[in-house]
Design a protein around this nucleic acid. Structure first.
Length: 433
RNA sequence: UCCGCGAUAGCUCAAUGGUGGAGCAUUCGGCUGUUAACCGAAGGGUUGCAAGUUCGAGUCUUGCUCGCGGAGCCA
C-alpha cells in the first residue's frame, strides 16, 4: 500500500513498506547506473537510490536532470542503511516532479555573507540554518515553559509607544494620526511593571526595536526580548530567578537538541556547566578583575564589549555582575540603600565572549525618588504619569530582567554573528529580504 | 558618526605594472554504493563606478558607491 504525507523523521516506523515522501532535492550524486538523490523535507534528510534496472528509463533520466531544490515526490521501499545519512534509505521506484528548480543560486560549497544575506529567503533551507531555526524555536518554547510552569502570566505590551521607555536609545518613529508621533518600543518593561501589580508575576515576550547605528556582530535593529517582572522580588530574588531560568533554558536545549547542535559543530562541554549557582560579583569586583588584567578602567564607566569578555573569561559559566554605578544605568532602577551611587542592577554576561544576555534590576518603587529621577533625566513627566501611578497606589518592591533572545540563540548555537539567529535580520544597512 | 579592511566568471578565490586563471555551479560524455562523490571536455569576464599617472593599469593615485569588521550605544 502506498502511503501519503510521511515526514522523513518518522521513516523508522515504515521499514519494509513502500512510501511516498514529498520534499526538495538537497543534493544528488551518480555513478553510472546508480543515482543518489538526497531529499529534505524540513524534518530530516533521506537518501533515495535509483538503480537503472529498477526504474523506467524516463525516471532514471529525470533523476539525473533535476536541479538542486526541485520539489519532488519520491516513492519507494524504506530500508535501514548505515551508509545513508539519517540511517534510512529509500529504494526508489517512483519520482514525480512538483516544480523543477533551475540554477538554484546557493550551492553546497562556500559562499560569502553578503551573497547569503541577499538570498536569506533561500539560505534558510541550508542544514545549518534549519538547525538554528529549530534551536531558536526550542529556546522560545523552553522560555515559555519555564515561566508558565512557575505561575507567570504572559502579558503582551504595546509595540507602538508614546515615548522612550528608558530615555536613552534612539527610537524608530512613525506618524500617528492626530496625536503626533509614535515610537516602536525598545522594551516592554514599564508595561510589565503595571502587569506585575495586577497579576503578581508576568512576562512579556515580543519584538523590540532600537534605531541605534550599531554595527557589530551582537546587534540587530529588531530583536526579541523576554522580560519577566515580579512583585515583591528584590535584587537577590531577581538573580535567583535569572540563574534558574538560564540553567533551565540551556540544559533543556543541550539535552533535547543534540542532533541540531551536532550539525552546528557546537562543543557543548561549556554549556553543560551552566548550572546553579552562577557566580555573582559586584561591579567593584569586576573593576578589580579588569585592573588585574591590565585594563586602564575608570570607576564609574560602563563595561564595554572587550571588558565583558575579560570578565567572563575569569569564569567558565555565565557571570552575574550586580550593583553598577547608577549614572550608567536607567532612571527606573532603584538605588542601593547602602550606597546611593550604585543601582540595584544586574547584568548576566555569557561566556566565550558572547557578552550581555540579560540586563535587569530592582525597580524604584518610591514615588518621590522616581519623580526626581524622571526630572533629573529631563524626561517628559506627562508621558510617565501612569508609570508614577504605580508608585502612588499600593507600590511594592519589584524586580525583573530582560533576556535578548537572539544573543541567547547565538551563544547556545556557538555562532559568530547574531544575524543567523533570526529568520530575517534587520540591521542598519539591511532591510531586505 | 569615527577607525580599519575589502569589491576580479553565477559562487569562493588566484594573478611581480607586461596575453585575466582554478575549484564549485551549468552543459556534454564516463562510471552499479556515492557521502560537499569522482574522471574527461565545453561555455562563461566592461576586473564595483568615474577620472588620473604610464608606452602599457585587475595591480599605482584621487574621488564616489556598496559591503564587512570594530568603537560608541545596548539585549
Amino acid at each position: 500500500m502506498v502511503m501519503d504525507k510521511i515526514s522523513i523523521s518518522t521513516l523508522g516506523k515504515f521499514v519494509g513498506e513502500e512510501v511516498t515522501v514529498k520534499g526538495w532535492l538537497y543534493n544528488k550524486r551518480s555513478s553510472g547506473k546508480i543515482k543518489f538523490i538526497v531529499l529534505r523535507d524540513g524534518s530530516g534528510y533521506l537518501q533515495c537510490i535509483y538503480f537503472k534496472g529498477n526504474v523506467s528509463p524516463e525516471i532514471f533520466e529525470l533523476a539525473d536532470k533535476l536541479g538542486q531544490e526541485s520539489s519532488i515526490a519520491v516513492t519507494g521501499k524504506v530500508k535501514e542503511e548505515k551508509r545513508a545519512p539519517g540511517g534510512y534509505e529509500l529504494d526508489a521506484t517512483g519520482l514525480e516532479v512538483i516544480n523543477e528548480a533551475i540554477d538554484y543560486p546557493i550551492t553546497l560549497k562556500e559562499h560569502g555573507t553578503e551573497f547569503l544575506m541577499d538570498h536569506r529567503h533561500l539560505w534558510l533551507r541550508s542544514s545549518k540554518q534549519v538547525a538554528i531555526l529549530k534551536i531558536r524555536h526550542r529556546i522560545v518554547k523552553a522560555i515559555r515553559d519555564f515561566f508558565d510552569n512557575k505561575g507567570f502570566t504572559l502579558m503582551d505590551p504595546p509595540i507602538l509607544t508614546p515615548a522612550a521607555c528608558e530615555g536613552t536609545s534612539t527610537l524608530f518613529e512613525t506618524p500617528y494620526f492626530d496625536l503626533g508621533k509614535a515610537y516602536l518600543t525598545q522594551s516592554g518593561q514599564l508595561y510589565a511593571e503595571a502587569g506585575a501589580m495586577a497579576l503578581g508575576k508576568v512576562y512579556t515576550f515580543g519584538p523590540t526595536f532600537r534605531a541605534e547605528k550599531s554595527k557589530t556582530r551582537r546587534h540587530l535593529t529588531e530583536f526579541w526580548m523576554v522580560e519577566p517582572e515580579v512583585a515583591f522580588n528584590d535584587l537577590n530574588d531577581n538573580m535567583d530567578l535569572a540563574e534558574e531560568f538560564l540553567e533551565y533554558v540551556v540544559q533543556t536545549v543541550i539535552s533535547e537538541m543534540t542532533e541540531e547542535l551536532k550539525v552546528l559543530e557546537r562543543d557543548t562541554t561549556k554549556l553543560q556547566k551552566v548550572k546553579r549557582p552562577l557566580p555573582r560579583i559586584s561591579y567593584d569586583e569586576a573593576v578589580e578583575i579588569l585592573k588585574k588584567n591590565g585594563v586602564d578602567f575608570e570607576w564609574g564607566n560602563d563595561l564595554g564589549g572587550a571588558d565583558e569578555t575579560i570578565i567572563s573569561n575569569e569564569f567558565d559559566m555565565p557571570v552575574m555582575v550586580h550593583r553598577y554605578p547608577s549614572a550608567v544605568k536607567a532612571f527606573y532602577m532603584k538605588r542601593d540603600p547602602e550606597n546611593p551611587k550604585l543601582a540595584l542592577a544586574v547584568d548576566v554576561l555569557a561566556p566565550e565572549g558572547y557578552g550581555e544576555v540579560i540586563g535587569g534590576s530592582q525597580r524604584e518603587d518610591d514615588f518621590d525618588a522616581l519623580l526626581k529621577r524622571i526630572e533629573d533625566n529631563e524626561l517628559p513627566r506627562e508621558a510617565f504619569e501612569w508609570y508614577l501611578d504605580l508608585r502612588k497606589y499600593g507600590s511594592v518592591p519589584h524586580s525583573g530582567f530582560g533576556l535578548g533572545l537572539e544573543r541567547t540563540v547565538s551563544w547556545i548555537c556557538g555562532l559568530d554573528h547574531i544575524r543567523e539567529t533570526i529568520p530575517f535580520p534587520r540591521m542598519i544597512y539591511r532591510i531586505t529580504p
